[in-house]
Amino acid sequence: MRDETALIRAAQGGDADAFEQLVYSYDQSVLRLAFNLIRSQEDARDIYQEAFLRVHKNLHTFRFDCSFHTWLYRIVTNLCLDHLRRRKVRREEDLVVQTEDGPKDRLDSVPETSADANPQHRLLNGELRRRMEQVISELTPRERAVFQMRHYEGMRLRAIGEMLGTTEEAAKNCLFRATQKMRTALGEFT
């Protein structure tokens, strides 16, 4: 198997197999990030498509000034942030949406991850999840992105700052505000 630098150079030279391998190396985490940030399968699919089309179109401009991972995630997070900002304006963040079959809770489409068979725990988990989804949806797009990348993707704040085109300190402040809001909102559960 070729190393990543060789793959990128080959893909820059038009080797479509190399590009395919690059996509396969990163697309699961790209989709997971978009899905968790946007919380909509359809929109995450659009972000995935747009991100990799941009990568394909602009790969020749990649100069190895940063890692490919950082470059790719910068594209993905920018697309997600733009999307979240637009959605904020359109006020589509409500947890309950109107469908043909009547009002539907968006959380119902998010799979339950706990295996706890205790109904009381399930209820509590359900309520907690609902509250968390609510508070996450109320974070600013930037706070949401930083929180998501730090808490769920396990990225360091320095790398997050680099991806978002800001400093480590600014990313730290974003994370601080996000956790502060959550602490306030989830106080009664802890």
């Binding site: 699961q28 999840r129 959550m182 602490r183």
Partner: peptide
Amino acid sequence: MHAALDLSHAEAPPALLAQCRRD
């Protein structure tokens, strides 16, 4: 609270990834 936040993490369904690749 940190542990509880893990509950909110959703994994993208594998079928969605396959669809994305086709698109």
